[in-house]
Nucleic acid binder design. Structure first.
Length: 316
DNA sequence: TTCCGACAGTGGGGTCGCAAT
DNA sequence: ATTGCGACCCCACTATCGGAA
């Protein structure tokens, strides 16, 4: 069922230079799925970020909103699953995709972390400042699992962000305390992400598509141990290049081409791969290693000329 | 004139469901 | 029974253009 009159959720802007200032509130960044909950009459509909009805995926959340919220409301929050102390998108994924009976059969527990309200008592409250909306939110919903309020702190600093990352959190979201609810992407909400980084071997490339020039993605790998002949495939990176860098990389890789993969382990891409001798070292930033041993949300930062390819091993 | 925000386009991993093999 | 593919989630980034500053 298509969403009608559904406001778009406010989206935070990624910020690579964290700052801490008065007038901002800081929340834990949760690694789950963005969900708007719309309570009308005596039922609740859950909406995904793109306006898809996802009530069937999280029926217990919808039921909890129906019984624990009051009036006609539109709430904003993140549905998460836990792996130990950490929110885990991988754990949540089966719940996202499975519908109806299949969803009920796989009862991975989920929680709905509420952090905002767009409509309360039938009225649009998006132009109220954040702090006022937070009060409205607390007055509108009785928490209790699976409903939880997203805690925030008024003061934070770089040390706190460091602690948060050491704890394995995904990062922080900074929100301007006096800002109205954003229409789509907004700089009133900023994401400070905990990122991992490391050097990896370039083991190949894929062809560009559409208007892209040079190459589509770099294929990456690392040595099982330093100096070892064993090369483990580590996935691809397809973003972070300027057009000029794309063309330069392609030219250099042509000169290193070989007919077969240098990788001895890992699940390799099935089609469209060109392989090279593993002599170039790339610097990468990414959020985490997936359970399949590949990079999640990778971006290319540049080539390293000061690093011996033989020494490239997995760090995390 | 310069800068910024919105948009389009291209790229990633993973899961599920379904059609084709 | 297996495989391939699209549709979703989560995203990353660059290039471009028009309007704001």
């Amino acid at each position: 069922m298509p969403a009608r009159d559904l406001p778009a959720p406010a989206l935070a802007t990624l910020c690579h230079e964290p700052f801490f200032a008065d007038g901002w509130l800081y929340e834990r960044k949760l690694d789950g799925m963005r969900v708007l909950a719309e309570r009308r009459g005596t039922s609740t509909t859950l909406w995904s970020r793109s306006g898809r009805d996802v009530t069937e995926s999280f029926p217990e959340v919808a039921e909890a909103i129906t019984t624990r919220a009051v009036g006609e409301v539109l709430l904003d929050g993140e549905v998460v699953a836990f792996d130990g102390p950490h929110t885990s998108f991988a754990r949540l994924q089966p719940r996202i995709h499975a519908r109806g009976a299949a969803a009920r059969a796989r009862r991975t527990p989920v929680f709905y972390y509420l952090f905002d309200v767009l409509r309360a008592d039938g009225a649009d409250v998006r132009d109220e400042p954040l702090t006022a909306r937070q009060r409205l939110l607390r007055a509108t919903v009785r928490t209790g699992d699976p409903l939880r309020l997203t805690p925030h702190r008024v003061h934070a600093d770089a040390t706190y962000l460091g602690e948060v990352c050491a704890r394995g959190w995904e990062g922080l979201v900074a929100k301007r305390a006096d800002a109205p609810y954003g229409r789509g992407r907004t700089t009133d909400w900023l994401k400070f992400k905990c990122e991992a980084g490391q050097e990896l071997l370039v083991v190949g490339w894929t062809d560009p598509e559409g208007s892209r020039r040079g190459l589509g993605a770099l294929l990456l790998g690392y040595h099982e141990t330093a100096g070892s002949d064993e090369v483990v495939y580590a996935g691809k990176v397809g973003t972070g290049f300027s057009e000029r860098v794309l063309r330069d990389l392609r030219a250099r890789l042509e000169g290193l081409a070989r007919s077969s993969s240098p990788c001895t382990r890992g699940r390799l891409p099935t089609a469209g791969a060109h392989w090279v001798r593993p002599e170039l070292v790339a610097q990468l930033a990414f959020t985490e290693w997936t359970s399949g041993g590949q990079l999640r949300h990778p971006r290319f930062l540049g080539l390293r000329t000061d690093k011996d390819p033989a020494e490239v091993v997995r760090e995390g």
